[in-house]
Simulated scan of single mutants.
Amino acid sequence: MNALSGFPPALVRRLVVKIGSALLVDPAGAVRVDWLRTLVADVAVRRAAGQQVIIVSSGAIALGARRLKLPKGGRGSLEDAQAAAATGQIALSQCWASLLDEKGITAAQMLVTLDDLENRRRYLNASATLERLMALNVVPVVNENDSVATAEIRFGDNDRLAARIGQAARADAVVLLSDVDGLYTANPHADAGAMLIETIETIDARIAAMADDGSASGMGSGGMVSKIQAARIATGAGAHLAIISGKVDAPLSHWAGGGKGSIFLAAQGKGARKGWLAGRLTTRGRIIVDAGAEKALTKGNSLLPAGVARVEGVFDRGDVVDIVAQDGRVIARGLIEYDSEAAVKIAGRRSEDIAALLGEMPRSVLVHRDHMAMV
């Protein structure tokens, strides 16, 4: 068994636990209070052992839809989803606060949007808030602010939100409670021969191909694809990520006692700024580079204009762009030193030609290595 199984407090100082809608809310739209109470008991035990816990909780839309009697679980339209979220979030926060209070634990609510964690300043504000709550011995309960989020500015699933919160909180690990007990070689609901993978050291094309993007319940918005995306964010930020079953009582204790699970091992930690870059879910443009530039980037060099084959998108200086290999792989992400119009003009040209092309040469690189993260 992996020594990290159960994410013991002795090895994991700060833990993010994500709970999906299908686990927290029953098909009729009511909170599964008895099950949730067992999870809160798990949290209390871990806190008593010295582990700090942050909860990322879904369920607001499902709860609100029941109270408002909205069709399709509140997801029939954007307006319905926003109204359901606004109504359900009150019930959700009250439930968490009440159950945590039974264990003598103070709860705090944090609602965030995608843009709150993609904007560097707001990301740092969220990070500071989480740090202060941890210092005050409070359990933050985090959810996406679905009452104001739209398709363009939302995570779409709380798996990736949990990974980004883990990054912002400098957590040691993230655990995703799921309707399956880990990553299998195939969909275990459809293939009896599917085998559980207990430890994943590297998320390569083989691992990504095992994902199934279906949500078994139809209530949530994530599948295995979103969980692997979350694992990329978490492990890239230096945190382990586990997928375990939430379909048992006291799921954290069950896992720690020998229950099944899959653990994605943390990569070597990036610096805080580079980790934020690598974990971003939105970018403003794409810089396609040749094989020589790709090789130079893997050695830690800056991106020079000469290695650029093509520029896509409209962006300003300082925006985040993807740096893409010829075969379409995103290999790095960074802050661009020129706007898109200028970048198109100097693409493929030597640095010494920039002044003649633009009338000035304020910078010799397109993306500096200090403002770039490999992904």
Rank of each mutant, 00 (worst) to 15 (best):
W96Y: 14
G269V: 13
A250F: 09
H368Y: 08
A86W: 05
I323D: 01
R349D: 00
N187E: 00
R32H: 08
V138N: 05
T202L: 11
G50E: 08
A10R: 15
A83L: 14
I244F: 03
R284I: 08
S245H: 10
K103M: 12
I233G: 01
A267S: 13
D26F: 07
A272M: 11
T87E: 10
R75Y: 08
L252T: 02
G73V: 05
A163N: 05
A325R: 14
K72F: 10
G258N: 05
E294D: 11
A237D: 04
L130T: 01
I203N: 01
Q89H: 10
R67Q: 14
T185H: 05
R329P: 00
N145H: 02
G193Q: 13
I336Y: 04
R170A: 12
H371Q: 12
R164W: 09
L335V: 14
L241R: 02
G359Q: 12
A22C: 10
L265K: 13
R13K: 15
V225W: 07
V31D: 00
S351I: 09
A356R: 11
V308C: 10
G246S: 07
A194K: 04
T298P: 00
V56F: 02
S226I: 07
G334E: 04
I287K: 06
A44K: 08
D316M: 15
A3V: 10
P140Q: 12
R164Y: 08
A169S: 11
A209V: 02
A163K: 06
E337I: 14
T199D: 05
F7Q: 02
T38F: 07
G220V: 08
N187R: 09
